[in-house]
Design a protein around this nucleic acid. Sequence first.
RNA 1: GCCCCCAUCGUCUAGUGGCCUAGGACACCACCCUUUCAAGGUGGCGGCACGGGUUCGAAUCCCGUUGGGGGUGCCA
Length: 471
Amino acid sequence: MSTATPRYRFAPSPTGYFHVGGARTALYNWLLALKNNGIFVLRIEDTDESRNEPQWTQGIIDALAWIGIDSNDPHFEGPYFQSTYAAEHVVAAQKLFDSGNAYYCDQTSEQIQERAKAAGLNGYDGHSRDRGLAPGPGHVLRFKVPAGKTIVHDTVRGEVEFENSTIEDFVLLRGNGTPVFLLANVVDDITMNISHVLRAEEHLPNTPKQQMLWNALGVTPPVWAHVPVLVNEQRKKLSKRRDKVAVEQYREEGILPQAMVNYLMTLGWAPHGDTEIVPWEKIVDEFALESVNHSPAFFDIKKLQSFNGEYIRMMPLEDFISAAEVILTSSAAPWPAERYKPEMFRAMAELVQTRVVVMAEVCALVDFLFLAEPSIDDAAFTKAFGADFATPTLAEIATAFATVEWNAESLKTAVETVGTKHDVKLGKLQGPLRIAITGRSVGPPLFEPIELLGRDESLRRIKSALARAQG
RNA sequence: GCCCCCAUCGUCUAGUGGCCUAGGACACCACCCUUUCAAGGUGGCGGCACGGGUUCGAAUCCCGUUGGGGGUGCCA
């Protein structure tokens, strides 16, 4: 390789949301640009005007920033827009025509199919190769695939050989004169001086065509690298229809960007040693394209969440509190804004931190502190109060709470005393109390929040639950 | 149909001919801890797709089979 600055690129089409597979490809390119002191070029492939919206571009930039690909970083270049290079695409097409590497063809797809069927062959047969057709309405420009074979040198896969006879004379310019993806992509890579094309494996079958184009245009092809695709449980390529693929959605749920990045990087690759949860710096340091796996990887949300839980627990408490507060004070919170008490959450934060896997779960764990009335889980209520001891013991607890010294420790002792008397273990005994206070059968430790709630409110909730149990 | 890619526990992976009785992580199960639920700790379940070679020796190399996936547009 030359000593010139390596130039990588990420070329998404703006289709409305940012795909996790795209995030992974972007990450690979970014990582290599950082590691090899190269440039990460962002090019928006916006030539399909029918599904193109300007705000999607900002969405891509935001999503990239979220996973640490900062458009202000000196390694970042762009965004460029494919649509602004339309003239170059046509010039290149003209060049290919002039040099005899391409020809015009007037065959419709029906005609092509008919002839293929008659001949028992597949695809286009090169019918117009030597007909000397001129450009004209409805005439497409086709590339004249040369004889021989094309060998693609792929950094992750090695040498992949294609027999040129199996590649039909593909279209460069549509009947209306606009360039197709294959051409536009190559021409842009050439004009942007791209040296490394790293993308998902689904592009591998296109690569010989692109390589022929580079050669026909008189430019040395780039270094190719095709990483395996991400698949769902059915081992199919992740799709927007069936699968949860939007990075934005994970972000909203409270997946931490570090967790997402770390997880994505363990798909098809692993850091040295027995630990998968590793800092980005270690990944940059150890990563090598040559060691990327060759087979598709299942995007396992459970494992992502497990990573996320670890990252949440790793956060300093203060950071966790600030991160939680974003959600707690947002419109997603089920209580009126003025009822939110930051000091109450602070007091609970440590107990919450080990109990959430995504940040969005924080709400449900503390909502009873900020809601005027806890939202009661009916099934859990019925179950908890179905026990014989439930009502009498809870009544006694209420009596004790009326006079007990108001702190978590004393509250717990008071409940235990009732338990001893009725021969019910604390674990069971606290069930009805928990429902009365929080509305749920599970949650953070009970006595701390009761202390926070205060005597009056706690007693009110207990009595209200008792009344409900009665009738 | 044709072309291409791929193949280690259910999943993500470590493994580059002897350190493999195949290691780790997620998930699952059990136990411990425990104020429910988590977290944490300990242990368990579970895999080299199959068949041929090559070799003193193969998860690792070769061939084949089978099975998956991707691509085959005047989409990107």
